[in-house]
Amino acid sequence: MTLQILLAISAILFAFGLAAALSRSNAIMIVIGIELMLGAANLNFIAFWRFSENPSDLAGILFVIFSIGVAAAEAAVGLAIIILVHRRIRSVEVDDASNLKG
C-alpha cells in the first residue's frame, strides 16, 4: 500500500462531502456533508502521520484530536441553529430561509 491509495480515498470522501454540502437543499444534509469533509481531512492527517519519516512527532495525531473537538462543537452549534430556524419558519430547507429578518 502506498500513500496514494489513502490520499485518493480521502479525496473521494471529500468530494462526496462537497457534493452533499453544495447540492442538497436540506440543512441537515449540509451538516452531514461538512462532517464527511472533516472526516476526509482527518484521514489525510493520519495518512501523512503514518507515512512520515518521524512518527514519534505526533503533530498529525494531535491535529486530528483538535479537529474532532472542533467538529463536535460545530455540529452542536450548527444543529442548534437548524432547530431554531425550524422553529421560526417550520422548515429545514435552506432555500426557504431566504428572509434576512429571521
Binding site: A8, A11, I12, A15, A19, L22, S23
Partner: peptide
C-alpha cells in the same frame, strides 16, 4: 444542485490529478 455536483467532481479530478 447539478452545479454543486460538478464543482465537487472537478475538485475531485484536480485532487486525484495532484495525488
Amino acid at each position: 444542485p447539478a452545479a454543486g455536483v460538478a464543482v465537487a467532481f472537478t475538485a475531485l479530478a484536480a485532487l486525484l490529478g495532484f495525488i
